[in-house]
Nucleic acid binder design. Structure first.
Lengths: 348, 348
DNA sequence: GGTTTATCCCAAAACGCTTTGGCGAAGTCA
DNA sequence: TGACTTCGCCAAAGCGTTTTGGGATAAACC
């Protein structure tokens, strides 16, 4: 049978029913079930059984109302000026979200995934106990809003301009960039270019800073293309095409997002350039598409599950009034070398 | 300033504060703000202004408790026997989810994305007003659970065995399969094979049925491989490899999921078979990876946004006690022809 | 002028839980 | 034995809404 909208079924068991069934007061039931007050073990057990027996499920609303917490956490991508980065990296976001969802559920919270909020009120309309903001852009009004209301916020990636304040989880993008650049150099690259988004999010800024520093150390002139419109294949294609018209053109490109990299790959191949024969290509984020590309792309695995887990964990600490062990957590990364940067690799 | 966990800020404005500010009772405030009772236009306006002035935001918990609704909708992938299909199709799922989230928010609901629930209690732990279940497997206990509790459920894809009951949104997979198969035939295929998951979800069953029927009409012997383990590239690779050992081997493969198709592509190329030269390849779902593959894969675009939107819309109708216009909605699909099935296409 | 009918608003009762403060009974110590 | 303490439980006061069932007042009708 499907449930008809106008079904009137018996109302669900309440704490009062449990109290009656167990022959105690509702106070005792509440305490017994939540492990709060001082309750004899036998009583606790009796209450538990009674609750189970009659299929008691506490009402989240009542609990929130009385306890002051909703049990909801928000996870949102910060609102960029436009849709630039939204869903730029589906795989990354999905894995991060999944890990955070699971962590939240294990702690008794539900995680609401809010989309990029053009309308800042979205984040304020749903009543959440805390929020994870992925890749915050500096001075995001909706983050400020949340903080004003006393809602704890953990960001993945730092808020540029207020690095020390706030709680965040991040990768060490500077280190990973150097790692990748060194790898490209070791594979024989003489002129490494960078394609990235604008430095409105911390990882783009980190990439640019690390790249610039790396070039300076070697006396190279930086060769950078910034994608400002859409961080999709098309954007990467255009940026790479521009790079190839420089003289001398780059013989290796490090790209900030996997979709940009896939676009860059197309651009190279469209010009008859072989990857990795003529140009080496590596990306800062990994994905199924990068793995499946021809040739498969060397990429930095940022460990999105770790990030999502850590962020949720930190947020829950904050929500429950515990001081997190560290205000800032830097998570490890891993360079996954694939054919796109292997000079020795056989071309398919 | 970041919010410290032990911040004690003034408690947020309640309906009582608004009532006081506007010089009316809380009943009037409630009615004015929700457009319920009969309120003089002037009073309504005065209340609205007062509410805005003091920054009143109704408490979702209190509202749920009193009104009996939580304002939460769940979206979940049905629990398959194992992780078989979970996230098989990230792109599809993501787009569907996003559309549903937006639709929900526009109607004043928040959408909670619940992960594949090994533990059936997950779906029951969060108190939701309704649930969208993506690709339900037959007799999923958590769906039954929800229905028992009177929680409306809309599925995307049908529940096999109870097709007529229940509300669902689906694609016409039989039609799209025939479309794709006809296309393969038109491109010269003489022996078309099928790779798909086991028929525990309706679209797999539809694919198999449509394929079998199509073969029967032509007097062909069906050539099917079922992926039972994991619907990833590896699974597709293995299935395709098995197909190529048949004699005669297929000269075209229609694949149920994009990741399986990408695996099949790898398998073909690993055996030195050219796509589309020696084997045509088409997939039932589209994705960025399919587009970016070499060659790009012909695929059926199922319109996940449309599905997500329609499902959320239908669910909200049910939650709010309206009878949806139709109990079953079949959404259009589109065959996107790319190089992998173009006999005429130049090989890269 | 009295009766009816609209109109606008309000008091009070839920909704189901958490938490505070307290009260007997039983145990402990001298 | 009395004075404390600890233990095990409970009554009652919220938490911030929605909703029900009127009650004033004003307008309309005869």
């Amino acid at each position: 049978m499907t449930a008809s909208p106008s079904d009137d079924r018996p109302r669900p068991a309440s704490i009062r029913d449990v109290a009656e069934a167990a022959g105690v007061s509702i106070t005792t039931v509440s305490h017994a079930l939540n492990g709060k007050g001082r309750i004899a073990a036998s009583t606790r057990e009796r209450v538990r059984r009674a609750a189970k027996e009659i299929g008691y499920r506490p009402s989240a609303s009542a609990r929130s109302l009385a306890g002051g917490r909703t049990g909801l956490l928000a996870l949102s991508v910060s609102s960029p000026t436009d849709l630039l980065l939204s869903l730029a990296d589906v795989d990354y976001f999905m894995q991060l979200t999944n890990a955070a969802t699971i962590t939240a559920l294990e702690a008794g919270y539900a995680l609401v995934t809010l989309p990029v909020a053009k309308d800042e009120s979205l984040l304020t309309r749903v009543n959440v106990d805390g929020a994870v903001i992925v890749d915050p852009v500096a001075r995001d009004p909706s983050i400020a809003h949340l903080r004003e209301r006393g809602v704890p916020v953990v960001t993945t990636g730092r808020e540029l301009g207020s690095e020390e304040r706030g709680w965040w989880v991040d990768n060490d993008h500077r280190a990973s960039t150097r790692w990748a650049l060194d790898h490209l150099e070791a594979q024989g690259a003489k002129r490494v270019a960078l394609i990235t988004g604008p430095p409105i999010v911390s990882y783009s800024a980190d990439l640019i800073a690390a790249y610039t520093g790396w070039c300076a150390e070697r006396g190279y002139e930086p060769l950078t293309e910034t994608v400002t419109r859409s961080a999709t294949e098309a954007g990467g294609y255009a940026a790479a095409t521009r790079l190839f018209t420089r003289s001398p053109p780059p013989d290796a490109i490090y790209v900030g997002l996997d979709r940009l990299a896939l676009g860059a790959l197309l651009a190279a191949q469209a010009r008859g350039l072989s990857v990795p024969g003529d140009v080496l290509l590596a990306a800062c984020t990994d994905s199924a598409a990068s793995r499946a590309a021809d040739p498969p792309l060397t990429a930095v695995n940022l460990g999105p599950e770790r990030i999502g887990h850590a962020a949720a964990e930190m947020l829950i600490d904050l929500v429950e009034g515990r001081e997190p062990a560290e205000a800032h957590r830097v998570m490890p990364v891993e360079l996954v070398v694939r054919d796109s940067t292997e000079r020795m690799a056989a071309r398919v």
